[in-house]
Design a protein around this nucleic acid. Structure first.
Lengths: 125, 125
DNA sequence: CTATAAAATAAGAATCATTCTTATTTTGTG
DNA sequence: CACAAAATAAGAATGATTCTTATTTTATAG
């Protein structure tokens, strides 16, 4: 994997965002800054970079993958009203984090986990 | 919502499965038994039935929704090798269940949660 | 600093899943 | 049975993602 200028840009721009864009949303954003970028490159590079753990892929949105520059463990809330997808730290999540650590410790074969809560986001509440 | 013969068949056939098919996989399976069924009806009815809680929709499975006749709370494992998607009870999950109950109790606005582990399934291990 | 091979990219065509449209059929109810 | 509402079949339309191919960029050896 070559860390090309384009790939650096992708990582950089994704890390600036607090949202979790789908590949095509991110493409629309990127092309404003680098108009020559092709949609295929965005899809390809988001896959490449996430498979190497350099960005996070959220396989949790129903129909479409979303990408996140924040690779630390955190949870997401999918709003049942507006469909938005936001970072989310639920009340009481300390024990959840512990449980997940424990499970990871006990199970040799678990690489990762993905949790999405569904409910009302701040705006819709 | 009218519980038509077709919808009864859909629920019945889905409950027979231990897999968690995507809508189109399930359509392929169904049409073997009821060849006249249309793909749009399968998509529509899986949505209708899951929105009423009669079947489960797994919105955590990667790019595509999967459907599950088992509506009880349980977790899933996505195999990082073969891509399979199976029911999964991780070691140490008692504390996870408690944490999730606690979070649900504390947070008025959470309707649901969806957890998918990634790792090796039994066959690939 | 070239030459070369490998990797990455742009452009847009192709594919594939999902949704939409419309005419027809089924269902529930008087 | 007659009617209205709901559901369905069929396939067209849409929209996201992947594929193909020619070109460009990158890394490396000489």
């Amino acid at each position: 994997m070559v860390l090309t200028t384009q790939r650096k840009t992708i990582i950089e721009e994704l890390k600036k965002l607090k949202t979790h864009p789908t590949a095509d949303q991110f493409y629309e954003l990127l092309r404003k800054k680098t108009p020559k970028i092709s949609v295929a490159s965005v899809y390809r590079n988001l896959e490449v970079l996430s498979s190497l753990g350099m960005i996070a892929k959220l396989e949790t949105s129903g129909a479409r993958n979303r990408f996140d520059g924040d690779t630390s463990v955190h949870y997401h809330l999918k709003c049942s009203k507006c469909g938005g997808f936001v970072d989310f730290v639920p009340e009481g999540s300390e024990s959840l984090a512990k449980s997940l650590d424990k499970i990871k410790g006990l199970n040799m074969n678990i690489d990762n986990f993905n949790i999405v809560f569904t409910g009302l986001c701040g705006k819709c509440r």
